[in-house]
């Protein structure tokens, strides 16, 4: 599903060259759930951004669904995302001008779905927000906002779901409910899950754990050996 070959990312800040990722290679199979862990500033989000085609790599190749997205321009990568990818973010990233239902409808509309409203409502029902469809994000609690984000992510039936610290802005209890919901939906839809986190308990829910350290990637069979 995802294949990465010798991926490098270098940025220049304050006149200094900074190597964030140094020749990373790995593979994620369809239906797998993988946690990417590492200290703050290790490059987790950078890697996630590159895997999802949100940013350009300095060198190396990324194959998403057998398509080399590192050779694509921004619009071609966007088309790949629209077709195969779903997202869940730490800060929910709901559009403030749209209601919960409209937020879920948005990726469906972008993908040209025929009845986006009905599909969106189905997923709102699945996350337990049937009666909040007409509410704007500002009147929803953090947990509710993240549930809307989950509904939005799964509504397009993505092959791959990228989640960036999905519980980072939530309290422990709410966070746990979101994690349960995330994995429940994931198992229902057989989606490949790539999750960036620094929480051991969340990483432990995944089948594989990849650790970034000093621009390199290390694979661990269990979360304990990842030494978060």
């Amino acid at each position: 599903m995802i294949r990465v070959n010798n991926l490098c990312k270098t940025v220049v800040t304050g006149g200094q060259q900074l190597d964030i990722l140094r020749g990373i290679s790995f593979e994620i199979k369809a239906g797998e759930s993988v946690a990417i862990v590492g200290a703050s500033g290790a490059g987790k989000s950078t890697l996630l951004g590159l895997l999802a085609g949100l940013d350009n790599a300095s060198s190396g190749d990324i194959f998403l669904h057998e398509q080399n997205i590192s050779r694509m321009n921004e619009d071609e990568r966007a088309a790949v995302r629209a077709r195969y990818v779903g997202f869940v973010f730490q800060s929910f990233q709901l559009l403030p001008g749209m209601t919960a239902l409209e937020n879920v409808m948005l990726p469906l509309e972008l993908a040209g779905h025929r009845s986006p409203a009905a599909a969106a409502q189905t997923y709102l029902d699945k996350v337990g927000l049937s009666d909040r469809g007409g509410h704007y994000p500002r009147v929803l609690s953090g947990g509710e906002q993240q549930r809307v984000a989950l509904a939005r992510a799964f509504a397009v039936n993505p092959n791959i779901l990228f989640a960036d610290e999905p519980t980072g802005n939530l309290d422990e209890h709410t966070g746990q409910r979101i994690v349960d919901l995330l994995f429940e939906l994931n198992s229902q839809s057989q989606t490949t899950l790539v999750l960036v986190t620094h929480e051991a308990s969340l990483a432990a829910c995944c089948e594989r754990v990849l650790t970034i350290h000093d621009g390199q990637l290390h694979e661990h069979s269990s979360v304990e050996s990842a030494a978060l």
């Binding site: 999802a52 921004e74 088309a79 948005l106 972008l110």
Partner: peptide, 14 residues
């Protein structure tokens, strides 16, 4: 909002 739309797959043209 545009960044979110693009992340969700919107092209520049869209």
């Amino acid at each position: 909002s545009v960044a979110i739309m693009k992340a969700l797959g919107a092209s520049r043209r869209q």
